[in-house]
Amino acid sequence: MSSITALPTPVTAPAPIPLRQILPWAAFGAVLAVVLLYFVGAEQGVTALISGETVHEFVHDGRHLLGFPCH
């Protein structure tokens, strides 16, 4: 009876992603996070960019979940 031996396969490490390719996406993510944080945390009262209660009511539960006081 013959035996079959498996040949070892070389393990290749993933190629690193250059910082030049990551930086625009990281900056976009940071700007998006700051805008979302503003709308959830500060879009009411004196600092409101949009008049009315629409934005406040839309993010009301998220505001409480993140610990921002609103009323």
Rank of each mutant, 00 (worst) to 15 (best):
A30G: 11
Q21A: 14
G45M: 06
S51N: 09
L65V: 15
A48C: 02
G67M: 04
V55T: 01
I50H: 06
L49P: 01
E57H: 04
G52I: 01
A15C: 01
V55L: 02
R63A: 04
E57Y: 05
H71Q: 13
P69G: 05
E53P: 09
E57Q: 13
A27P: 00
L19G: 11
L49Y: 01
P8Q: 12
V34L: 15
R20I: 08
G67Q: 00
A6F: 08
T9M: 12
S2I: 08
V55W: 04
P14L: 03
A26M: 14
A26R: 13
L65H: 12
A26K: 14
A42T: 03
G52P: 03
T54W: 11
H56T: 13
V55D: 03
L37N: 13
T54D: 12
V59E: 04
E57I: 05
V46L: 12
E57G: 02
F58V: 10
T54R: 13
V34A: 15
H71G: 13
C70L: 11
I22G: 03
S3K: 09
L23N: 02
E53M: 04
F68E: 01
Q21W: 07
P18R: 14
I17F: 00
T54V: 06
T9A: 13
V11Y: 00
A27R: 09
A26G: 13
V55H: 01
R63E: 06
T12R: 07
H56E: 14
P69H: 09
G41A: 06
V46D: 10
V31L: 14
E43S: 03
L49H: 07
E57P: 00
P69F: 05
P14M: 02
V40L: 03
V34S: 12
P24H: 05
E43C: 05
L19I: 14
P10D: 11
H71F: 13
T47K: 11
F39M: 03
V11I: 09
L32Y: 14
H71S: 15
T47V: 10
H56P: 07
A33T: 05
G52A: 04
V55Y: 02
H60Y: 07
P10R: 14
H71R: 14
S51R: 08
H64T: 15
V59A: 04
A33G: 05
G41D: 01
F58T: 15
P18F: 05
L36Q: 09
V40A: 00
A26L: 14
L32A: 15
A48W: 04
G29E: 00
T5M: 12
G67N: 09
T47M: 10
F68K: 02
P69A: 13
R20G: 10
V46H: 06
G52L: 03
T47Q: 10
L36K: 06
V59C: 03
R63F: 04
F28Q: 13
G67H: 02
R20V: 05
P18V: 06
V46W: 06
E53I: 03
G67K: 05
E53A: 10
V11N: 00
H71P: 10
P8A: 07
I4D: 09
A13D: 09
A30H: 01
L66D: 08
L19P: 11
L19C: 08
L36V: 06
C70V: 15
R63C: 01
A33L: 11
L36E: 07
V34F: 12
H71C: 11
V31A: 14
F68C: 01
F39Y: 12
P16S: 02
R20H: 12
H71E: 12
W25A: 08
A42S: 06
E57F: 02
